[in-house]
Each structure stands twice: as structure tokens, then as C-alpha cells.
Design a protein around this nucleic acid. Structure first.
Lengths: 205, 205
DNA sequence: TGATATAAAAATGTATACAAAATCGCCATT
DNA sequence: AATGGCGATTTTGTATACATTTTTATATCA
């Protein structure tokens, strides 16, 4: 955004391509060429190039193709995610203030009672975001954000296959945090993400 | 590199700018303009732009200025680094094979006996790299690489101020790994990096 | 004085043309 | 049928011109 609230073409290209990737509008592995993208968006190659570069660095594009993570990629990603998120859960259990805890409770409650899949997905994501935020470390927060994009890319199919116990596990984690029990919160988070990974891998493969 | 072994201008620009930043050839906070850089390297703005973008994403440049980390930035960075490196140390203590362990011993030995500052610095870096490699997770390895660049930027002054007990601490970590004692290795690594951070902050500020 | 407007300069953003490289398809050869 | 050129085509890389935005300097007025 510049001072008049207009986006630059580059940013526009970036968000548009990113959204398309995340919405699965390209078959996994589709080749993205600068000219096609530029023409389809009515802009020149220059800003498109920069958008692609950025998406490459974020891991959504790999040598001009929409990144299609392998099982191994996902295991690496989750190993990292577990490290950061269980650490965050521990910190949350130590320092999270009541207002935040009730937000966390709210996520669980909404996800439990709602029947709208989109809403449930959103609340589950919000749950994790709230906890990662408690790392209070911008690097960690940003890192998880990037990973979530890739994970989402992989498991778009999965989210709708409501995994059993998902909400129950969130509930337990929430309780451990409310009880200020860092070890338990961290362990539960780890187990939770491990289960998530295995479930996703089973569905997809 | 293309197939003939020639670098693209872009890559050339990237490495050259990066090296200059890391060698402290710009005062902290110097403004980098595309035109200046392009002219000084005899190429056009286009490849320079991309190089800058990349360095921005890696954190060495922040709004066109050479990034000058604050104390807070360094604390965030080290928090992340401690998380990954102590995790790696634990894994190293579990799985590192003898050949690697003797390499680790070699690092410590070289650093202990050498009188050449450059050599000592190199061996100390090698020590950490060997351990991080034992995470066997490319994401973690890459992440630490990026952070090391920024840390180096911050503490170029520090490395020559040989910190007391640095090598001794490496020795202890090495021993814990050789003893296959994950908890100890992890804890020692954490303490080691915390000491590193505090030492660096004291020198610089 | 100092706050603000504004013209000039500098820097970044974008389009486009041309260069270099990678890719593809076809044919010849074994 | 597989292999290895080789030209044609596509795609990416670079330079350059022009547009837009941001910054700087200067002048004006309360």
C-alpha cells in the first residue's frame, strides 16, 4: 500500500497468485510462466517476476512450479512446527493472561458447537495462532505463518475430513494452559500435531 | 550458475552485496540505492533489484538500509537459535555417529590449540554447523544459516574478543554428545548460547 | 520561529525490447 | 527402441525508458 491506499502491481500480483495457489486453482505442480501470469493479470512481467521470487522464498513455488510437498517435506515441516508450537504452548501456560485464555476457550467452544465447516476450520486455525502468539517472538510467529501456508496447501483435502478428537485435543491443551501447566501443555501440543500429521498423510496417500 | 559455470548478474549482485554487508563495508544503517549499486557493479538495476529483494527477505536489508539489529532483535534471534540448536544437540547426542563425533572433537581441538583468530572463529562456526546438521532437517539448517548471517553482522566485533570459557563450553557439549546424554547436551547448548548472547550484548552496547 | 506548501531531485515502480538460456520436437544413427 | 544431436520455440535474464512516488530543499505566511 502506498500513501493513497493503492496497492502496487507487484503486491497485487503476489496476493493474487498466492490466493490462487492456496485455493487449489492450479493442479499441484502446474508450471507458472511469467508471461501467462502477466497477461492474465493485465500487467507486465516485471512485477510478476518479483511476486514469483517472493513466493519461491516462502516455499509455495519451487522452480516455477506450484510446490507439491512430499511426505518427507511434510515431516520436516511438522518437526519444525512441533518444536515452535510446543515451545509456544509452554510459554502460554506460563504467561497467558486470562483475557487471552478466554479467547482460546471461545475457539474451542465455537469449533465444538458450530456445524459450518468453514467456521470450524477458522476457529481451529485461530486456536493455534493464539498460542503461537504467546511465543511473543516475531520470528517464530512469521515462521509458523509460512509453514501454515504450505501445510494448508498439502492438506486442503484434509481439513474437511474432520479428524476425530481434534477438538477434544484442543480442549485438553486449553485446559493445561489454563491450569498453568507448561510441561503438560507442551506435551499435549506435540502429540496433537503428530496426530495431525499422521492423519493428513493417511488421507492424502 | 548456469550450465557453463557462469553466474547470472543477479547472483553476482547478491553475493557481492551480501559479502560487503557481512564484511562491514557499509556503516550500519547505510542506505542502499539501486542506482548506486548498479553503477558500482556495472550492471543494470534489474538484477540489483532482485538481489536486494532477496537480502531483504533474508533479513540483512530492511527498507533499503543495511539492517542494524537492536538488542531486542538479537534476543528474538537467539531465542529461536537456542530452540533449534539445543534440539539439534539432543538429536546429536542420540544419533551422531563416531566419525562425526571425532570431527566435532577435532573442531574443539583445533580451536583450543590454534593461535590464529580466523582459524578459531572458523572452527567454532564449524562446531555449531556440525551439530545443527544433526537435526537432519533442511528447514532447521537453512533457518540457522540465515540467523547466523545476521548474528555475524551484529557481533563481528565480538568474535575477536575471545570470550572466556567458549572453547571449554564446546568441549563439555562435545563430551555430552559423545556420552550420548541428550538432556545434558541440550542444556549445555542452551546455557552456552545464552552466555554468547549476553557477552555479545555487553561488548556491543 | 516554525509550520506548511510546493518545486525540484532522487529513488522506486512498471513496461517493453532485446539477449541468453532452457526446453521441446524431430530426425538420424546405432 | 533408445540415444544423441540440432534447430525452432518458449521462457527467463537484462537493459533501458518512462511513470509514479518519496524525499529534500526552499520559500512563504501566520
Amino acid at each position: 500500500m502506498n500513501k493513497n491506499g493503492k496497492k502496487t502491481s507487484q503486491l497485487h500480483a503476489y496476493t493474487q497468485i498466492r490466493d490462487k495457489i492456496l485455493n487449489g486453482e492450479y493442479e499441484g505442480g502446474t508450471k507458472l510462466t511469467e508471461v501467462n501470469l502477466a497477461e492474465s493479470m493485465g500487467i507486465s512481467r516485471t512485477p510478476v517476476r518479483e511476486a514469483i521470487r517472493r513466493l519461491e522464498q516462502e516455499g509455495l513455488i519451487k522452480n516455477k512450479k506450484v510446490f507439491k510437498p512430499t511426505e518427507t517435506d511434510m515431516r520436516y515441516l511438522f518437526e519444525m512446527r512441533i518444536l515452535i508450537e510446543s515451545y509456544s504452548a509452554k510459554k502460554a501456560a506460563r504467561y497467558m493472561i486470562d483475557e487471552q485464555i478466554s479467547q482460546l476457550r471461545d475457539c474451542v467452544h465455537q469449533a465444538k458447537t458450530s456445524t459450518d465447516t468453514e467456521e470450524i476450520i477458522y476457529q481451529n486455525k485461530r486456536f493455534h495462532d493464539l498460542i503461537v502468539k504467546e511465543s511473543r517472538n516475531p520470528l517464530m510467529i512469521e515462521n509458523v505463518e509460512h509453514m501454515q501456508a504450505i501445510i494448508y496447501l498439502f492438506s486442503r483435502a484434509v481439513v474437511s475430513h474432520k479428524r476425530p478428537f481434534l477438538v477434544e485435543e484442543h480442549e485438553q491443551i486449553c485446559q493445561a494452559i489454563a491450569d498453568h501447566n507448561p510441561e503438560k501443555a507442551g506435551d499435549l501440543m506435540k502429540a496433537h500435531l503428530e496426530a495431525d500429521l499422521e492423519f493428513a498423510l493417511n488421507i492424502v496417500t
